[in-house]
Write a protein that binds this DNA or RNA. Sequence first.
DNA 1: TATGAATGAGTTTTCATTCAT
DNA 2: AATGAATGAAAACTCATTCAT
Lengths: 236, 236, 236, 236
Amino acid sequence: MKKGSKAAEPDTNGITSDTAPGDVRRGDARRKYDPEQTKRNILDVATQEFSAMGLTGARVDAIAERTNTTKRMLYYYFGSKEGLYQAVLEKVYGDIRALEQDLHVSELDPVEGMRALVEFTFDYHDRQRDFVRLVTIENIHGAKYVEQVKSFKGRNVTVIHTIEDLLARGIAAGQFRSDVDAIDLHLLISSLCFHRVGNRHTFGTAFGRDPSHPRLRVRHRAMIVDAVLRFVRKED
Amino acid sequence: MKKGSKAAEPDTNGITSDTAPGDVRRGDARRKYDPEQTKRNILDVATQEFSAMGLTGARVDAIAERTNTTKRMLYYYFGSKEGLYQAVLEKVYGDIRALEQDLHVSELDPVEGMRALVEFTFDYHDRQRDFVRLVTIENIHGAKYVEQVKSFKGRNVTVIHTIEDLLARGIAAGQFRSDVDAIDLHLLISSLCFHRVGNRHTFGTAFGRDPSHPRLRVRHRAMIVDAVLRFVRKED
Amino acid sequence: MKKGSKAAEPDTNGITSDTAPGDVRRGDARRKYDPEQTKRNILDVATQEFSAMGLTGARVDAIAERTNTTKRMLYYYFGSKEGLYQAVLEKVYGDIRALEQDLHVSELDPVEGMRALVEFTFDYHDRQRDFVRLVTIENIHGAKYVEQVKSFKGRNVTVIHTIEDLLARGIAAGQFRSDVDAIDLHLLISSLCFHRVGNRHTFGTAFGRDPSHPRLRVRHRAMIVDAVLRFVRKED
Amino acid sequence: MKKGSKAAEPDTNGITSDTAPGDVRRGDARRKYDPEQTKRNILDVATQEFSAMGLTGARVDAIAERTNTTKRMLYYYFGSKEGLYQAVLEKVYGDIRALEQDLHVSELDPVEGMRALVEFTFDYHDRQRDFVRLVTIENIHGAKYVEQVKSFKGRNVTVIHTIEDLLARGIAAGQFRSDVDAIDLHLLISSLCFHRVGNRHTFGTAFGRDPSHPRLRVRHRAMIVDAVLRFVRKED
DNA sequence: TATGAATGAGTTTTCATTCAT
DNA sequence: AATGAATGAAAACTCATTCAT
């Protein structure tokens, strides 16, 4: 009647994880003791487990088991389960903001820039399910862990700046209406991109239609871009 | 991560719960044996705990403690922690669909009907945070519990019918574009209403702006109605 | 994750129970309150449950559930789980001794009488599995419950008398050897008849041969009679 | 039926257990970390408790208490109560078969070999009460745990081979009859050796004679050997 | 006589964390 | 830097029995 360590069972279907634990081992030779690699390995496995099971649902044992190291190392490097969880949050939030930098939307025409931003946001959420899940999980905990992640706030302002720039240029060009708040717009875009990923399971069972199905993805992407553009566009 | 049985700590701030456990005791006198009341009482407390702590985070002891009964009764009526969780899901999903029935959108002009539907959806999510949180939690578990809730699928079709009716009438009246899918539209509306509630904590800390603040609520409500109407409206 | 009340699961395969609970309802009309019938019904169900699950393994709830009455009645009539168990023992032991009386072995030729006794013992054990199991269970508890069953000791002497009579007559007739102790012989016969029923499960899995299979039954019956007769017979 | 943790009360009287827990600690010094010893210690205590109380009757707490370790280790090594029970079964069954190997019956004259086998079987059951009780307990559970014990079936064939060899040689030598099936004969021998141990309590109270009394043991041993030899011997 | 609801004390199991090596 | 064994505290769940009707 043993249970075995099933670990991270739910929601590993679909386009799976963006993190391939175990075999990360890049760099030159396979040194016997490689602290950095060990840490990275733990972090990758933890990302999967926390994302799949939630903070309370995740099992330290389960994480340790899928690691190249032992449980002790996990405590050695991250201090506690919560410490590890925060490290995961930090890593994951860092990734998305880093990518957003590379968009160079400012060089595009406002409408095209807006389209590019929405498409990027869509694609990112669509692909980084772990990210979406972790955000969801954080919200269940009242965001109290992410609050402690240093440099979390600072990072997020950049998107707002991007949007403000787009809006300003669009208004100046007579393409966009002038009464749209940048943060509100960001919320609107996020909503549309986030919900279909984060709540796809209940949505799927409720309506017998998995929103993450490839065919739907294309349609949703177009729909969301369309909705956002209609929203910001100046009516004449 | 020590606990004590402080229970349901996170996220009980804001416009709190719609369920006032304990004092339900309606009917005649305070009968000592009132199974229905006992069940309802347990269910109400459980709704709060699960919604606040998640399925894994919730503590059976914590639920029992805030109940008029003992832990034993919880098992007597619901069989297990998961059984209780499912009962909560069933109740909560039942509530929203029941309310949707009373909208009588079909009697309104398509545009006004659409506005009414969106406003209702907005208000419901805005008020029923427990519902939003439970849906979120379910998605972390891959919706596997809600799948077992009988009559879950059936209930959800009604919204789609409502939307289909609105769309059809709007198209006929030349007010709406004809290329919108009802389920996609429902997803769009849900996204906009759900996200700002479900993820308000991370959003709040990221942008220093709590989307559930009363002043913002009014603005968001208008924005979402606007966005939806712009999306469905036929451009000439 | 409900467990349901599976109750009496193990070992109900094969030629099942000799007690048909529920529908005993004999006697004249179906009176609404029939204490005797209620008691008998409880006793029958309890026999099955105890026999299948053991004293500790049996569940009062499981018994009550398969009864026409409620759990309360069970306590009303039998006082406690143990009281009910003892009542079951009393009933079951009463049955076998009553049957033994009807053998009238004393009228038969010693060899034929011995054969008849062995065959009867064989058949009884073969058919009354509940009895065999309950004896087994009692032995796990050091026979401490059967000791309290009044008239238990008295009843058993009769078999010994029967054997003594057979032995004496057989010796007198020059058919049997004279150095066999009656109680020892009874033990020998019991052993042969009991073991293949009581331990048929482990025997079955160990040797891939179920000793209770009809074909084996015939062979075993003959073998045991043969073994006993060879044992008592005087060699010349 | 209140308990307290008096543990293993029934049936520890008589020539008690063959396993002396606690003080096993062989090997060099008293190392603080000695997994093998820890496991063996747990296993020994568990053997006693399960044998005395049955699977359902046994208390994990009671086992842990009489151990050098804590309850947690019990789960660490054996996974669950049932897992521990199975480990006990495995150990106990392994022991008897191992001993049987050392008999070297094949070197003896068929009659003497048969006598040696029966005497060995008798002695083993007479001494290893824990084994007898555990087999009994397993049968109450329909042998469903022993079935899962790998290598259980394989082990048992050896006895049959031994018997087949004895029979074949005895027939060839004109000493044994030729119509005896090896498995049936094994059943017969087991019956005689098992029953007087396993059911000695009910037998004792029924006939006021404890079959495990030293004086009776000698007599029974002779009787059983006699009965078996008479059964297999060729009559002329 | 009969019943469904209720319960306290126990029982198995789990989990994050630390110790000895 | 790394490890497998060990643990206390808590969590889920069960059970025989009794109460109010």
